[in-house]
Design a protein around this nucleic acid. Structure first.
Length: 119
DNA sequence: AGTATGACGTTTT
DNA sequence: AAAAACGCCATAC
């Protein structure tokens, strides 16, 4: 397993807490490859079973399950719901609520004033 | 070695 | 808002 990227991806995915989700791109970036989203998906596809990874907690950046129906879409939806994640019938998840944000990874959002003084 | 493919993401219609 | 086009990059053949 001389592939650090692979190991990082596994560690990151394994670190996603139950009830939260992450996106392929996010994982890829944290693992060091800004454009490795596809590779993350490939890694999950090939090694999720072997390493017991919570692959269901990784979805597309649009907040939607990327897995095509017939390839595990329903299973992923079921698993997520079982963990308490609300999933739309079309596989949509509200990232504002369920997106996992690594501790210390992002600066705490400062107040984002609307720009115009209040009423 | 070159082409096709995909559990992606961003940009443009 | 939704769909298509384009870019990326490791595997498969």
């Amino acid at each position: 397993m001389p592939d650090p990227f692979c190991a990082s991806v596994r560690a990151l995915v394994a670190a996603i807490p139950s009830g939260k989700v992450a996106t392929y791109g996010r994982i890829a970036r944290l693992a060091g490859k800004a454009h490795g989203a596809r590779q993350v998906s490939w890694i999950l596809h090939s090694q999720s079973k072997k390493y017991q990874l919570p692959w269901q907690r990784v979805i597309g950046a649009a907040g939607r399950i990327s897995l095509p129906p017939g390839r595990g879409f329903f299973e992923q939806r079921r698993r997520l719901r079982q963990e308490g994640v609300s999933v739309d019938d079309r596989g949509r998840v509200d990232l504002r609520i369920y997106l996992w944000q690594a501790a210390g990874g992002k600066a705490p959002a400062q107040k984002k004033r609307t720009g115009r003084a209040g009423p």
